[in-house]
Design a protein around this nucleic acid. Structure first.
Length: 428
RNA sequence: GUGGACGUAGCUCAGCUGGUAGAGUCCCGGGUUGUGAUCCCGGUUGUCGUGGGUUCGAGUCCCAUCGUCCACCCCA
C-alpha cells in the first residue's frame, strides 16, 4: 500500500450514515422557502478578493486572517467565499437586477474560513442563506424571523432562543462608537489584553467580552440602544411589537453586534446551549448600505445564514433524524442459471413497480450469506430464486420483518404478489 | 494564532510499577449439502500516528513532529 493522502484539516466528509439529516434539513428548508415565495439563486464559490474586503470590512477577523485567498494564473487575487451575502449581492448588481426591483432569494453551499477547528466550527462549512432585497422593513424583518421559527418547528428543533438588537444607521453607530471609545479609554487600565486590542479595531466587540472581571465595566458602559436615531428606534419598536403579536419569544441583547461590518439596524441571532462554545445556529440582519457600497443602486436589504452542520447536530440531539431508506425487496439467487436470470427478473420488476427499491444479491455468496445481506439491507421482503424455482417457473416470497410463512408466486404474477406482500408488510 | 487532552485491528476500546500485543464488533466459513436477525465453533486483520533518544529490552519513559478533539479567539 502506498502512503495515504490526508484530508484537509477542518474539511469533513459527510458520510451516508449522516446524510439523511442533511437531506431532511435541506428539503424542509427548500419547501418552506418556496412557501414564503423565495427563489433559489446559485453563485460561484470563488469571487474577487476585493468583493469580500469591501462587503465584510477590512478590519474584521474574517477579512484580516480567515480568508482562503490565492492569485490565479491570470494574476487576479481570488478568494473562496467566507460567507454568502456578498456574492449574492454582487450577482444582483452584475446582472442588472436592481432597478426598482425586489428579490426574495436563497442560496446554499459551502463557505470557507481558515480558523482553528473545534466543535461546530470547520474550515469548510455549509450554510443556507436567505436574502430579501428592496424591502425597507420592518415587516420583512419580522417575516424572515417568523420563517426561521417555523423552520425549527418543522425540524423538531427546540433548544434555541432568539436574540435581537438594533445597530441603528451607520451614522448613529459612528456617534455611539465614539462615545464608547471615549468611555473605554477613560477606563483603559481596567481593560484586559483582548479588549485593548479590540478597542482599536472593533470597539463594539469589547462589550461581548466573556471575562467576568470586565463585567462591571461593560454594564456601566454607554448602551447602543440609547443612541439610536429616531427612525431606527421606531423600526426596532415595530419589530418587537410584531414579534410579540406573532407570539415569537425573543430577548433584546444590546450587546449583540455581529462580526461583519455591513449590518445596520435589525440584527438577530438564534443561539443554543446544546452545542458547546459555538452557540450561534442562525444569524443575520439588515444591510441597507451594502449594495450601494458595492457599486449598485442604493437598495435596502436583509438576510441571514444558518449553519447546516450546527443545525444537523441539534436535529441529531433531538432525535429528529430519519433512518436511511431501506430496500423494499432483496432478491436472493441460487445456482448459475438463477443468478443469470435474476438480473433480467429484477430489471423487469423495476419496470413493473417504479419507485420500489429492489436490491439484487451481487457478488455471489452462499444462501446463509445472502440472507444475512437481505436482513441487513432492511428489506421487508426477500424474493428467492433458485434453479429449482426457475425450473418450475415460480419465485418464493419470504417476509423478513414479521413472522409469516413463505409463499410462492408464478413468475408472471410476481410483481403483483410483491405489491400485496409489501402492503401487508407495512401494517406492522 | 494561543492553551489543554488524546493518537493501540475497518470501528469501539483494554494493555497495572518498561519484558516486542488483546477483547468486543465487523467481515468470512461451518453447525443447518437451499433460509436472516439469536446461539455455538473456527478464521483473517496491526509498520501500537511518525521520527529520534534513554534502556539488555519501549505500546508503556523522554524529546520532536504530524493529526484529532475541546477551549480561548471568532463565528454559522
Amino acid at each position: 500500500m502506498s502512503e495515504q493522502i490526508q484530508p484537509v484539516r477542518g474539511m469533513n466528509d459527510v458520510l451516508p450514515a449522516e446524510i439523511t439529516a442533511w437531506q431532511r434539513l435541506e428539503s424542509t428548508a427548500r419547501q418552506l422557502l418556496a412557501e414564503y415565495g423565495y427563489q433559489e439563486i446559485r453563485v460561484p464559490m470563488v469571487e474577487r478578493t476585493e468583493l469580500f474586503q469591501r462587503a465584510i470590512g477590512e478590519y474584521t477577523d474574517v477579512v484580516e486572517k480567515e480568508m482562503y485567498t490565492f492569485v490565479d494564473q491570470g494574476g487576479d487575487s481570488l478568494t473562496l467565499r467566507p460567507e454568502g451575502t456578498a456574492g449574492v449581492m454582487r450577482a444582483l448588481i452584475s446582472n442588472g437586477l436592481l432597478r426598482g426591483q425586489r428579490h426574495k432569494l436563497w442560496c446554499d453551499g459551502p463557505m470557507f474560513r481558515h480558523e482553528r477547528p473545534q466543535k461546530g466550527r470547520y474550515r469548510q462549512f455549509h450554510q443556507i442563506d436567505v436574502e430579501a432585497v428592496g424591502f425597507a422593513g420592518p415587516d420583512v424583518d419580522v417575516e424572515l424571523i417568523a420563517l426561521t421559527a417555523r423552520l425549527w418547528r418543522r425540524l423538531g428543533i427546540e433548544r434555541v432562543r432568539l436574540q435581537i438588537n438594533s445597530l441603528g444607521t451607520p451614522e448613529a453607530r459612528r456617534i455611539y462608537r465614539e462615545k464608547l471609545v471615549e468611555y473605554l479609554r477613560a477606563h483603559h487600565d481596567q481593560l484586559d489584553a483582548d479588549s485593548r486590542r479590540r478597542l482599536e479595531g472593533n470597539p463594539l466587540r469589547v462589550l461581548d467580552s466573556k471575562n467576568p472581571e470586565m463585567r462591571a465595566l461593560i454594564e456601566a458602559a454607554p448602551v447602543l440602544t440609547d443612541h439610536l436615531d429616531g427612525e431606527s428606534r421606531e423600526h426596532f419598536a415595530a419589530l418587537c411589537a410584531a414579534l410579540e403579536a406573532l407570539g415569537i419569544p425573543f430577548s433584546v441583547n444590546p450587546r449583540l453586534v455581529r462580526g461583519l461590518d455591513y449590518y445596520s439596524r435589525t440584527v438577530f441571532e438564534w443561539i443554543t446551549d446544546a452545542l458547546g462554545a459555538q452557540d450561534a445556529v442562525c444569524s443575520g440582519g439588515r444591510y441597507d448600505g451594502l449594495i450601494a457600497q458595492l457599486g449598485g443602486e442604493p437598495t435596502p436589504g436583509i438576510g441571514f445564514a444558518m449553519g447546516i452542520e450546527r443545525l444537523v447536530a441539534l436535529m441529531t440531539q433531538a432525535g429528529a433524524v430519519p433512518a436511511p431508506a431501506a430496500a423494499d425487496v432483496f432478491v436472493v439467487v441460487n445456482g448459475e442459471r438463477a443468478a443469470a436470470y435474476g438480473l433480467q427478473l429484477v430489471e423487469r420488476l423495476r419496470d413493473a413497480l417504479p419507485g420500489r427499491r429492489f436490491e439484487l444479491n451481487l457478488g455471489g455468496g452462499n444462501f446463509k450469506a445472502q440472507f444475512r445481506r437481505a436482513d441487513r439491507s432492511g428489506a421487508a421482503l426477500a424474493v428467492i430464486l433458485g434453479d429449482d424455482e426457475l425450473a418450475r417457473g415460480v419465485a418464493a416470497l419470504k417476509p423478513l420483518r414479521r413472522d409469516a410463512g413463505q409463499s410462492e408466486s408464478p413468475l408472471p404474477d410476481l410483481a403483483a404478489a410483491i405489491q400485496s406482500a409489501l402492503a401487508t408488510a407495512v401494517e406492522t
